[in-house]
């Protein structure tokens, strides 16, 4: 694993994490995190779309006229999103229903557009694909962390399996939208504190 590969992975998952560092993709992060399974499927969908969109954008980057590149990127991203949507409808109809419009809305997820524009336009396909995987994984991990707390407290279960027993009184607040806001704020708060220490030691520049 060379230095660049390593740096792409750590940047995507941790130092430049889309959610708590760049505050991108928040809308879907708030919407689907009431259940672990929803978050997992959404995360996998996003990893797929980001990775392949970046790969395609990177392959076409030398042939794409600069002033129409955004149009091309949107076209590529939407094509992959529709593929995910059709796949879910055909093989996991229950999942497709649970996620509702949010699968289609991956198109508007700023993470993908942002990575295509800032990374895939300038880097070779291999790295672009890896960057897409890393950014998507960073997003998925945070979604799963938020969903872990929300589902555990809100339903007393994880992945639909009851953990806390029958006597557990569910926190309705956690299932409702405010629960997502609180959890997301806590995640960002914690990460801010971690990065503050690092930058004082001359680590990451904010």
């Amino acid at each position: 694993m060379n230095k660049k590969t390593k740096s792409i992975i750590t940047m995507g998952i941790w130092q430049d994490n889309a959610i708590f560092r760049q505050i991108l993709g928040i809308c879907s992060a708030l919407a689907v995190t009431n259940l672990m399974i929803n978050s997992l499927v959404m995360g996998l969908g996003l990893i797929f779309v980001t990775a392949f969109s970046e790969l395609t954008v990177s392959f076409l980057r030398q042939y794409t006229p600069k002033h129409i590149r955004m149009m091309v990127q949107t076209l590529i991203i939407s094509a992959y999103v529709i593929m995910v949507d059709i796949f879910l409808k055909a093989f996991f109809p229950a999942m497709s229903e649970a996620l509702g419009p949010y699968v289609g809305l991956i198109i508007t997820n700023c993470i993908i557009m942002g990575r295509c524009e800032s990374f895939a336009q300038k880097n070779p396909p291999g790295y672009a694909f890896l960057d897409g995987m890393a950014s998507g994984a960073g997003y998925a991990i945070i979604l799963l962390i938020i969903a872990f707390v929300r589902e555990l407290l809100g339903f007393g279960s994880l992945f639909g399996i009851n953990i806390l027993g029958e006597s557990w009184v569910s926190w309705t607040l956690m299932i409702m939208p405010p629960g997502a806001f609180f959890m997301l704020a806590v995640v960002i708060w914690i990460s801010k504190n971690i990065f503050k220490e690092k930058s004082e030691n001359g680590g990451v520049k904010v």
Binding site: T64, I68, M71, V72, L75, I76, A79, M83, I86, F87
Partner: peptide
């Protein structure tokens, strides 16, 4: 370029849609 790429992606999606 835009026409070619649009046709290419749309055809792929149309095929996937037809199959599924």
């Amino acid at each position: 370029f835009m026409i070619v790429i649009t046709v290419a992606f749309t055809s792929v999606l149309a095929i996937i849609n037809e199959v599924s």
